[in-house]
C-alpha cells in the first residue's frame, strides 16, 4: 500500500491528460466523458510510391463527449501532394498541389470497458466527403488492458462513393471502392506518461474495373512502432509505419504495392484539452 502524499504527487500530474491515444492507427474504446472536449491536430506523411511521391494529410478534429460513453467529432481535412510528372517531351519535374479535402463527422460509443469489463468493446462510425465524393467508415473496436500491457484490435469497413454525371445536370453517387482494414496494436505502458506500441495494419481495397465489377486492387500489410506521451493537458502520439509486403497487387517485381500506396507513413497525433 502506498502512502497517500507521495503516491498522489506521482499520479496526479500524470493522469491529467485528455483522451490519450496509445496507438496512431488502432483505435481504443475510450470516449470522452460528457461535457469534456479536445482539439486534435493530425498529420500523416506518406512517402515514396513507384516514383517520387510525398503527401501530407492534415486533419483538425474537434471532439466532444455527448454522453459518458458516447462522443462526436468534427474534422476539417487538407492534403498537400508533391509527385513526379513527365511531360510530352519526356522531361520530368516535381509538381505540387494543395487542396481542401472536405469535412468529416465521427460518432463513437463505448459498450464495454477494457479495465472494468472482461473486454473493451466500442463502435465507431464516420462519414466524410467533398462536393463530389463521399466516404462512409464503420469500425468495431476491441481492447483490453493486462496490467502494464494493452492490446487493441479494430475491424474496419469503408465505402467510397463518387458523383457520376448521368445526363446533363443529373448526377448520382456511385460506389466505386470498398476498403477492409484490420488494425492490431500491442502497447506497453511504461509509466502513466509514456507508452510504446507496435501496430500491424492490414488494408485491402476492392475497386471497380473497366467491366464495372469489383476486384482486389491491393492487399497490403504494414508494421511499425508507436510512442505516446501524456502531458498535463495534452498528449502526443507518433508512429512510423513502413509497408511490409503486398499480399495482392504487388507492383512489378516489387514486394510492395506502390501504385496507390506508399512505402512509408509517418503519423503525428496531438490532443489538447479545451
Amino acid at each position: 500500500m502506498k502512502t497517500s502524499l507521495p503516491a498522489l504527487l506521482v499520479l496526479l500530474p500524470a493522469i491529467a491528460s485528455a483522451n490519450q491515444r496509445h496507438y496512431a492507427y488502432t483505435y481504443e474504446t475510450a470516449t470522452l466523458p460528457m461535457g469534456a472536449a479536445e482539439i486534435e491536430p493530425w498529420t500523416t506523411v506518406r512517402l515514396m510510391r513507384e516514383d517520387y511521391y510525398v503527401r501530407f494529410d492534415h486533419r483538425l478534429e474537434f471532439e466532444v463527449g455527448l454522453l459518458d460513453n458516447f462522443q462526436a467529432a468534427f474534422y476539417l481535412n487538407w492534403q498537400e501532394v508533391s509527385s513526379l510528372s513527365t511531360d510530352d517531351k519526356g522531361t520530368s519535374s516535381i509538381v505540387g498541389s494543395s487542396a481542401f479535402k472536405g469535412i468529416s463527422l465521427e460518432l463513437k460509443g463505448k459498450l464495454l470497458d477494457p479495465q472494468a469489463d472482461p473486454i473493451g468493446l466500442g463502435l465507431y462510425f464516420e462519414i466524410g466527403g467533398l462536393t463530389n465524393e463521399l466516404e462512409i467508415e464503420a469500425k468495431v473496436l476491441l481492447d483490453k488492458h493486462f496490467g502494464d500491457f494493452g492490446v487493441a484490435l479494430n475491424a474496419v469497413y469503408e465505402a467510397e462513393f463518387e458523383a457520376e454525371v448521368e445526363s446533363g445536370t443529373d448526377t448520382e453517387l456511385e460506389l466505386h471502392a470498398h476498403e477492409i482494414q484490420v488494425d492490431l496494436g500491442f502497447a506497453y505502458f511504461i509509466s502513466p506518461r509514456w507508452s510504446v506500441a507496435l501496430e500491424l495494419v492490414s488494408r485491402t481495397e476492392l475497386a471497380k474495373n473497366e467491366a464495372d465489377e469489383f476486384e482486389t486492387e491491393y492487399s497490403i500489410l504494414s508494421l511499425g512502432p508507436t510512442v505516446g506521451y501524456a502531458g498535463e493537458r495534452f498528449w502526443i502520439t507518433a508512429s512510423i509505419l513502413p509497408q511490409l509486403a503486398a499480399l495482392a497487387g504487388a507492383t512489378g517485381d516489387s514486394l510492395h504495392h506502390l501504385e496507390d500506396k506508399e512505402r512509408l507513413e509517418l503519423r503525428l497525433l496531438m490532443g489538447f484539452e479545451i
Binding site: 502506498k2 498522489l8 483522451n19 472494468a116 488492458h145
Partner: peptide, 24 residues
Amino acid sequence: VAKCSGCHRLIAPAALDAAGWRGM
C-alpha cells in the same frame, strides 16, 4: 469508469489511501 477512463487508464483503488483519494 464512465467519468475517468475516457481520459486516462484507471488507477487501482489500492494505489492510494483514503486521504489520497480525497485529494485526487
